[in-house]
Write a protein that binds this DNA or RNA. Structure first.
Lengths: 339, 339
DNA sequence: AGGTTTCGGGAGAGCGCTCTCCCACGTTTC
DNA sequence: GAAACGTGGGAGAGCGCTCTCCCGAAACCT
């Protein structure tokens, strides 16, 4: 470092105007006579001026940056994030909204205790104007920490009770109900489910919705095994289900990867899908399309939700929204080959 | 916004000392009498002081931040990044090095033309002290842009000719040679290869290394099909190879995902692996272990390379390294079930 | 004892920018 | 023609911090 680039002052001298005028040209605020504007721009180009963001932030109290935070409490964090297309979809949804406003999106990962502390400290010190948080585990303390630090925050998924921050969410019970009704309508009478880990934000919403919908049809007992949102855990869960409840004729998994694992295991065991056992996933991620057979699944409009999340935050930063504004999306059932 | 937290001044008043002393305590520079140190810390805790990073950066010309940039020129960028475990490994390697130095790692993605421009602008304005760049395509202009902007930069993979920046790389030809020698040693005499896309940084290093090693054994013609680093493209490439060169008895793929695709296709066609055709991958990613059969592959020590990349940058920031320091890693062959 | 280091603290000058004032100069209005 | 207004520019006060300089007191030498 040590190198100092040209400053506003230098541009002002070069163009023969005052610092204030150069600032006005750069930021496009107030009227500046066209010819002066031109000479200022030329001066900027000539000496290669770049505004100093630190100086700017110091007075505006804005960084022009929004953090997209991925956080989890467990291990093998990055392996999860960088193999589940879900996060790619979130990023895809968020980016365009921010780009359009010329806000720099910054991805932050909190993969450990230390990381979490450093991250909160960084944001408290003004590392970003706000945070979009995608928690992988229900009990992650990060959202509360950010809210407590006074940082405008919007969550993907419902916040824990009492957390005053905005969020977007999916109507998970409704999604589970869609799956249940579909299975029922196609004649399945002995369904089981591979549920989310107890630590997942949506853990029991999908499970309960599924149970309730079936209860309405008189099915009072549904076998449940918990997975961990991975293909492998889906295989293992399916193995357990098949062993403990050989009579089942349908499985509803809390995400597509687990559904995919279930299908793999079933077919390896010579159980035909959807012939003998129907499988329904959740998310409609690319995995659903890639699986053989292609999965019937509950579509979660992740990109739209992520975009909404970004929009809520931006509006909150503009002061046009309360800090607890939220938006809930409706799921849709996508029927493919696994049912 | 608009809210102003307590400043150094406030802490100084509260503790009955000067601003300078508080600054010294906060930054741990020079000696401060223990009792004063304590009373300052108490004052800080009492009024909840957090240093303002913008003000700090303004004078130190440091942000305490390093950017990890993922960039590509093509489309479906995020889908690639968030489904290939490779990036997770890079992140895994980089994070600990930076955390240890209390440097905040910031992930930046350049998924479009506009994103690239915004990103360079952001970094030029002082968004980070340096950049670790992982280019997915050979011809991405981003590295040159960053170097031109005077930002300390370290690349994953060799820079294009004339780019003055540090890098880490794998000895790709050596890796390809390992694969070739292994196939030759196990009696394969009609090998083919699924190469990288022409746009990949390592595109022809692996291809040429493979060819040369075989040429040394008198094999002058090796069938080549290009893939795109995905499982699907591996399948398609394998299909082409099998159709055009039915006699082949071995395939070397430029990464594991393509090797996996090749295996899938072969088995679906009733060709036994490794019985009739042996398959070698590259990277030793988790995909290699997960594939059936488990892949023989060339191990790229991605985490170590990423860690080295971070270390090179940090040392460069400390002024302890030239801006073009580099490090090349040796690959290792991992023999599993596919050969 | 006088001189010289250390040591611990304060004063104050910026870092580069934004933004509120203020002023000079038209242009309109009655 | 004087008062009112609008328009475009400059002056300059900070934003919150770091860091060099300075200064007094205590500790160390001959």
């Amino acid at each position: 470092m040590g190198y100092r680039g040209p400053t506003l002052e230098d541009v002002a001298r070069e163009a023969g105007v005052s610092r204030a005028t150069v600032s006005r040209v750069v930021n496009g605020v107030r009227n500046v006579a066209p010819d002066i504007q031109r000479s200022v721009r030329e001066a900027i180009a000539r000496i290669g001026y770049t505004p100093n963001q630190a100086a700017r932030s110091l007075v505006t109290r804005r960084t022009g940056t929004v953090a997209l935070v991925l956080c989890a409490t467990g291990r093998s964090f990055t392996a999860r994030v960088f193999s589940d297309p879900f996060f790619g979809r979130v990023v895809d949804g968020v980016l365009p909204v921010l780009r359009r406003r010329a806000i720099q999106p910054v991805l932050l990962v909190a993969e450990s205790e230390q990381a979490r502390t450093q991250l909160v400290e960084y944001l408290r010190q003004g590392g970003a104007d706000g945070a979009l948080v995608v928690p992988l585990d229900e009990n992650d303390p990060l959202p509360s920490m950010l809210v407590a630090a006074g940082l405008p925050t919007v969550l993907f998924g419902r916040p824990r009770d009492g957390e005053r921050c905005g969020y977007v969410d999916l109507d998970n019970p409704a999604g589970a109900r869609l799956a249940a009704e579909h299975l029922w309508a196609t004649g399945r009478r002995r369904p089981a489910t591979i549920a989310a880990p107890v630590t997942a934000p949506t853990a029991d919403e999908r499970l309960d919705g599924f149970r309730e919908a079936l209860a309405a049809h008189g099915v009072t007992s549904v076998p449940v095994v918990r997975g961990r949102f991975t293909v492998d855990s889906g295989r293992r869960a399916m193995a357990r289900l098949l062993k403990d409840h050989p009579g089942i004729d349908a499985v509803f998994a809390a995400n597509d990867l687990m559904a995919q694992g279930a299908c793999q295991y079933l077919r390896e065991q010579g159980v035909s899908v959807p012939g003998e056992v129907a499988v329904v996933g959740f998310d409609d991620s690319v995995a659903a399309r890639k699986a053989r057979p292609q999965l019937t699944t509950v579509r979660q409009p992740v990109e739209r939700m992520a975009a909404a999340m970004a929009t809520l935050l931006v509006e909150q930063l503009d002061g046009a929204r309360s800090e607890t504004a939220s938006k809930v999306f409706e799921p849709v059932l996508v029927v493919r080959d696994s049912t």
